[in-house]
Simulated scan of single mutants.
Amino acid sequence: MQKIILLALFATLAACAARSNVKLADPQATKLAPHVGQVCMLRSPLPEGVKHKVLGNINSSKQTYGSVNELLPLMAADARAIGADTVINLNTSQKMGAWAWARPVGTGVAVKLEDKGSFNCASSGGELR
């Protein structure tokens, strides 16, 4: 009986962890190679004239209480996994959930810049992760 209770407890705790997923813009497109570099997390669109390709939408959440800062590393990892170097239109907030009055959620658009050298993340108001 103790083993069943412990298993149920671990399953419940695992369901509460922060998670993130990507919906590709074009699932039929050629996949880009993942990378290990930094990703620019930008709360706004890219500045005018910065050429880019939209790779997908990233959604992240946690089922229990927590900070939106828990989601940012997960979202950056998802962007790296699909070859993106920037997440634009980043939006993080707290929403009411079944297990928490305020749970962190986040969304953003993963993009690949055509010329990384022409874009400065910090001067555009972004944060490298």
Rank of each mutant, 00 (worst) to 15 (best):
Leu13Thr: 12
Lys62Tyr: 01
Val36Asp: 10
Gly56Thr: 15
Gln2Tyr: 08
Gly56Phe: 09
Leu6Glu: 12
Lys53Asp: 03
Ala33Trp: 07
Asp78Ser: 08
Leu13Cys: 08
Lys3Pro: 00
Ala77Ile: 02
Asn59Tyr: 07
Leu42Val: 02
Ser124Cys: 06
Leu113Gly: 01
Ala29Glu: 06
Ala14Leu: 11
Gly37Gln: 13
Pro104Ser: 07
Pro34Gln: 10
Ala11Asn: 08
Ala81Lys: 14
Ala77Arg: 12
Gly66Ser: 03
Gln28Met: 04
Ala25Met: 10
Gln94Tyr: 08
Ala76Gln: 05
Val105Glu: 00
Leu9Val: 14
Gln38Arg: 15
Arg80Asn: 11
Lys51Trp: 02
Leu24Lys: 14
Leu90Glu: 02
Ser93His: 11
Asn91Ala: 03
Thr92Leu: 00
Ser118Asn: 10
Thr92Met: 01
Asn57Met: 11
Leu7Arg: 15
Cys16Asn: 08
Leu46Gly: 04
Met41Leu: 12
Ser44Gln: 14
Pro45Thr: 14
Val54Thr: 15
Val39Lys: 09
Ser44Ala: 10
Val68Pro: 00
Ala110Arg: 12
Ala102Gly: 10
Leu113Arg: 08
Ala81Val: 03
Thr64Trp: 07
Leu128Ile: 08
Lys3Asp: 06
Asp78Glu: 11
Thr92Trp: 00
Pro27Glu: 06
Ala84Asn: 05
Lys31Phe: 05
Met41Lys: 12
Arg103Tyr: 03
Thr86Cys: 10
Gln2His: 11
Leu72Lys: 15
Val87Glu: 03
Ala18Val: 06
Pro45Asn: 12
Ser60Ile: 01
Val36Ala: 09
Ile88Lys: 14
Lys31Tyr: 05
Asp78Leu: 01
Ser61Trp: 07
Glu48Cys: 02
Leu55Gly: 08
Ala17Ser: 10
Ala29Trp: 04
Ala81Tyr: 06
Val50Ile: 15
Ile5Lys: 13
Val87His: 04
Leu32Thr: 13
Pro104Asp: 04
Gly97Pro: 06
Ser60Leu: 01
Asn89Gln: 09
